[in-house]
């Protein structure tokens, strides 16, 4: 279920506690290409498509 916006402050902390207790691991990353800013139309299309799928 989508959030309208991301929780902040105390709500963020409570959500992290919930997520920690309901998950096995968490992921953080670094994209190789900031394609959301500088990508070609094809790249942006691919990224949006991949988010949907």
């Amino acid at each position: 279920m989508r959030m309208y916006t991301d929780p902040r402050g105390g709500a963020y902390e409570q959500v992290i506690d919930l997520a920690i207790s309901n998950s096995e691991c968490f992921v953080l990353g670094r994209r190789f290409q900031p394609i959301w800013r500088y990508g070609t139309g094809t790249q942006v299309f691919w990224r949006r498509w991949s988010l949907i799928c």
Binding site: C25, F26, V27, L28, G29, R31, F32, Q33, R47, S50
Partner: peptide, 9 residues
């Protein structure tokens, strides 16, 4: 969703 380095903790 893209090429990159991902860390699982």
């Amino acid at each position: 969703y893209s090429a990159g380095t991902y860390y699982l903790f």
